[in-house]
């Protein structure tokens, strides 16, 4: 379990990194936190010609607070996201989700952006990006493009990123402070990849749910928004809960793996959704 030899390049700045990517002919991998990349290199599942280390680039490790959003840089570690006061104030659901992200030592190195780029369908942050309508800034030597989280994930470990591209920031637009939220996850051990998780935000007006967002993970090839279930809940109250849960169970196509059967996962996602929606309803003002 030793990686094959490759060229190691420590990028001086963003331009340098993008130049290296452009010249690598699609055969470079970016090293940020390395918590998924290093095992894949050790298993020789990946044998890149160039390992591009971006850890020495100054300024990429910040969460920048703007008027209507926060911007997360590509070297923001899980530990930073989990303990950031602005995140806790404006995205309490993200702070809650962070408590389920891996184990302590992994959180010290792993990055928010790296988790999106890795795109594991049972990882929390891709689902949270989807739920929070994240906008993902993708850069290359020839320019930039913005992709919404809804369009970013294509399949298990597959995104729209081209080999010469790098995610340079992720914008999370603020939601109203009256927004209610609920996050429920179940894993065999706390901190492991989830068997399923559900994240919900909604607002409440005259005892009706509005702006309902429901995202799920672990029950499909990518994290998913449950748009049909959101519509069932919209302008409804908790009396609709059983129907919303059924809509979610109908919408997902979980797979059987060694940790759980598809039938159990379908059951589980409904249970978690019921709890998350009830919590969101209860916390909405």
């Amino acid at each position: 379990m030793k990686p094959a030899a490759c060229e190691y390049v420590a990028a001086r700045d963003l331009d340098h990194a993008l130049q290296v990517l452009a010249q690598a002919g699609g055969d470079a991998k970016i090293l940020a936190g390395g918590q998924s990349l290093m095992p894949m290199l050790n298993f020789r599942l990946l044998n890149p010609a160039i390992l591009l280390d971006i850890n020495r680039i100054a300024g990429l490790d910040r969460i920048i607070v703007k008027r209507d959003m926060v911007t997360i840089g590509p070297l923001v570690r899980h530990r930073t996201t989990a303990t950031h006061p602005v995140i806790a104030k404006y995205f309490p659901i993200l702070t809650k989700a962070m408590t389920h992200v891996a184990h302590h030592t992994i959180r010290n190195r792993g990055t928010f952006v790296g988790s999106l780029c890795h795109a594991d369908p049972a990882a929390e942050l891709p689902m949270m990006a989807l739920l929070l309508n994240a906008e993902i800034e993708i850069s290359s030597a020839t320019g930039k493009r913005l992709v919404s989280a809804r369009d970013f994930f294509l399949g298990p470990l597959v995104t729209v990123l081209e080999p010469q591209e790098m995610v340079t920031s992720v914008d999370l637009p603020f939601t109203s402070s009256s927004t209610g939220w609920g996050f429920e996850e179940f894993a065999r051990r706390h901190g492991d990849y989830a068997l399923a998780a559900v994240a919900v935000t909604l607002s409440r007006r005259r005892n009706q749910a509005r702006h309902v967002r429901i995202a799920v993970m672990g029950v499909g090839e990518t994290p998913l928004r449950m748009t049909a279930a959101e519509e069932v809940m919209d302008r409804n109250n908790l009396d609709a809960l059983a129907d919303v849960v059924e809509a979610i169970r109908r919408a997902v196509k979980p797979a059987t793996d060694l940790h759980a059967s598809a039938e159990y996962r379908r059951h589980l996602v409904g249970v978690l959704a019921g709890r998350a929606i009830a919590a969101a309803w209860g916390s909405a003002q």
Partner: peptide
């Protein structure tokens, strides 16, 4: 005893609680 095994046992009993 995994959660999935408990699910299967309860499902077999035909009394799946919601």
């Amino acid at each position: 005893i995994t959660p999935d095994r408990i699910f299967q046992l309860i499902t077999q009993q035909g009394s799946l609680p919601q």
